[in-house]
Amino acid sequence: MSSNQEPINTFSSRLVVLPEANIDTDQIIPARFLTTTTKAGLGKVAFNDWRYNNDGSLKADCILNIIDPEEHRILVGGNNFGCGSSREHAPWALTDYGFKAVISTEIADIFRSNSLKNGLLPIVVPQDIHDKLTKNPQQRVTIDLEACELRFEDGTVFVFQIDAFSRQCLLEGVDAMGWILNRVSSIEAYEQRTGKAAA
């Protein structure tokens, strides 16, 4: 929940490319890690079955075990990223690992909604921009949320779409719970008008 959420504005980063299509939230965090009653520390099990062998040792060839998360804040995934289960543990795990943005040609609805509430910026790009990103993970790209721009080192600028309200919330670190709590007079009026007030 966004009460303690850091505002996002502009940042630059190298990329982690996971090119597979349909990376579902069971891949991002397998269900057996969902018995937690907090949201802390899930970064260590982000993509658990991609990163660890059955004996708990690290898989040497997994990109997520090779890179320095501090240097790689942007995850570029294949099409339909974040599909499947509604578990908010997925963005909790990704942000705890160190990601600040996810880029794909398509991002699943519930995952996108959950990401926006956790300071993880979901960006949908067309295929040519996606290709330009995946071709060179070592490049540094800049995400400017104020301007809604994805900027490449070669000067290419892509303007991405994001819901205006969600953008404002991310820019200002708006407390989404606080915002909806402030609608209480409208909520009461609705309940009265529709006969849904508590008996």
Partner: peptide, 23 residues
């Protein structure tokens, strides 16, 4: 009827409402 994340579970518990864009 639709699935929501845990932040939204909190919103509904507290307000019986959600912020939504019409699909």
């Amino acid at each position: 009827a639709f699935g929501i994340g845990t932040s939204e579970v909190g919103h509904v518990l507290a307000t019986q409402c959600l912020t939504q864009r019409k699909p």
